[in-house]
């Protein structure tokens, strides 16, 4: 069974934000009204964290793209009272919108604030002209959503691979962010497959995971020079 994981090379990443836009377009993530957005209700499945370090003028700014980490020991799934979020056999942490009752316990439980809530009916702000990706359903008011590692792409890739009676090749299934990253900073694949790029990257000396001491076993690895 494949286990899907991601590695983000922060030494390559420039923080341009293209992954954020790609994600929003791919997954029909709502654009909220401007006043809502300013209240912090912006919905990004792929967010960007900015960290400052150093003393002037030796300032370091590091920007870090942050999707859902699809933890192997996810805290969010344990608190869900209705089984609307769970981890499947391939390591994807899924969100079942039609079961979600909007209690937002999982948002509180997630140490990485990866989940976002539909505060309003996703009207995409008045008259918004949005072209929807037909492969992804749109969500409704009162449910929590988050990055799925573009699992809708996996369905199609699996179908084709099964049809041709072969395993899924490395790089055949990648989320939208990894596909368009102009810095080629995002690696994605089956971490159990020793030939995959993500397996190699996760074992790199620069690789680490966020808040590893929590024991939630995130499946997103960040690569950054130890000295920085």
């Amino acid at each position: 069974m494949a286990k899907w994981a991601m590695a983000i090379d922060l030494d390559r990443c420039t923080g341009c934000g293209a992954c954020m836009a790609a994600c929003k377009m791919e997954n029909n993530v709502p654009i909220v009204e401007p006043d809502e957005a300013l209240q912090g209700r912006v919905m990004h499945w792929m967010d960007m964290i900015t960290e400052y370090g150093g003393d002037y003028p030796g300032i370091e700014i590091k920007r870090m793209p942050k999707p859902c980490f699809h933890c192997d020991n996810p805290p969010c799934t344990r608190v869900c009272p209705v089984g609307a979020t769970y981890r499947n056999e391939e390591g994807l942490v899924a969100q079942v919108y039609h079961r979600c009752i909007g209690c937002r316990y999982c948002m509180v439980a997630c140490p990485f604030t990866a989940k976002v809530f539909n505060w309003k009916d996703p009207a995409w702000i008045e008259g918004a002209s949005t072209c929807f990706n037909p492969d992804v359903s749109r969500r409704m008011v009162g449910v929590v959503e988050k990055c799925t590692f573009c699992s809708h792409r996996l369905m199609k890739v699996k179908e084709t691979a099964d049809e041709e009676d072969r395993p899924i090749n490395d790089g055949e299934y990648v989320p939208a962010c990894a596909e368009i990253c102009p810095a080629d900073a995002i690696y994605f694949g089956d971490i159990e497959d020793k030939g995959s790029s993500v397996y190699k990257m996760s074992g790199d000396y620069r690789a680490s995971r966020v808040m590893e001491d929590l024991g939630v076993e995130p499946k997103v690895y960040y690569l950054v020079k130890r000295t920085r």
């Binding site: 391939e90 899924a94 992804v136 359903s137 799925t148 369905m155």
Partner: peptide
């Protein structure tokens, strides 16, 4: 019958 086999 995994949810993600069909639901998107």
């Amino acid at each position: 019958n995994d949810c993600l086999s069909c639901h998107r």
